[in-house]
Amino acid sequence: MLESLLVPTGIVALAEIGDKTQLLALILAARFRKPWPIIAGIVAATLANHAAAGAVGAWISSYLTDSILHWILAASFTATALWTLVPDKMDDDEATTKRAFGPFLTTLIAFFIAEIGDKTQVATIMLAAQYPDLLLVIIGTTLGMLIANVPVVLAGNFAADRLPLTLIRRVAAAAFFVLAIIAVYQAIKVSSGA
């Protein structure tokens, strides 16, 4: 049960380093210079986005046999591992939400939109399909998002400029590859009836 919390937390925290939403956090921190409303916006947006993604993952897993689910998870984790190796760049339209909304609402809207189709949202879908406790998966992926983004909001450029992003992306990719290997092992095990 604790695995449903800890694995998603670690995976998303690693995958989020250098991600476009981390760049967005940096831009919002520089623009508004009010860290707590920005952090609250990140929490609200991530919970809403990852709850929807987790629900999709849980729904998908209820319609697939264990064997098929594990093969899909293995392919998805492999694709996400490869995707993690590619550095993200901030899209101009995601950073230009009107300032009139203030730091909380701007962050909420921008983060929610930026997370749609992002690798951490895809990871949340896969993790929710794999782990039995949906609530813990959502809490874990949200904690992972906060572990990666709160220091950027609080420390601004200092933290982002000093992190070895290439190494962190490689560690995150390796973690996704390990999950893919575990899913392949589980698929083979289920298929063979062991």
Rank of each mutant, 00 (worst) to 15 (best):
F32D: 01
A159D: 00
P103T: 07
A81D: 04
D92N: 10
L6Q: 00
I147V: 15
A183E: 10
D19G: 14
L73K: 10
D118H: 13
T46P: 05
V56E: 01
L73S: 10
L85T: 12
F101P: 09
P37G: 03
V86M: 08
V122C: 07
A194T: 14
D133Y: 11
Y185R: 13
L73D: 06
S4T: 07
G18K: 12
L14H: 03
T84M: 10
F176N: 12
G57V: 07
A81M: 08
L165K: 15
S62V: 00
A25C: 10
W36Q: 09
P35L: 02
D93W: 15
T96Q: 13
M126S: 14
L28S: 04
D66S: 12
K34C: 00
A13K: 02
P132D: 11
Q121D: 14
E94Y: 11
V153P: 03
A55D: 00
K119D: 01
K34I: 00
T120C: 05
V171K: 03
A40H: 01
L105P: 00
I188T: 09
A30N: 12
Q22L: 02
N149S: 11
K98D: 15
R99K: 14
P87H: 12
D93A: 08
G54D: 06
A55W: 12
E94A: 06
A194Q: 12
A30Q: 12
D88A: 12
F77V: 08
N149E: 13
L146V: 10
K119A: 01
I39H: 04
D93T: 08
A95Q: 11
A74I: 05
A160L: 06
D93V: 11
K89C: 02
L143Q: 03
W59G: 01
V56N: 01
I116D: 06
A81T: 03
W59C: 00
L28E: 05
A79M: 13
D91H: 14
V43E: 04
A194C: 01
K98F: 13
S191P: 01
G156S: 03
I17A: 12
V137M: 05
W83A: 07
I27W: 06
I17P: 02
R170K: 13
L28P: 04
A40Q: 08
L136E: 04
A175D: 02
I138W: 03
R31I: 01
G193C: 10
V153C: 02
L5R: 07
S67Y: 09
M90T: 10
H70F: 15
S4Q: 05
E3Y: 06
R170P: 00
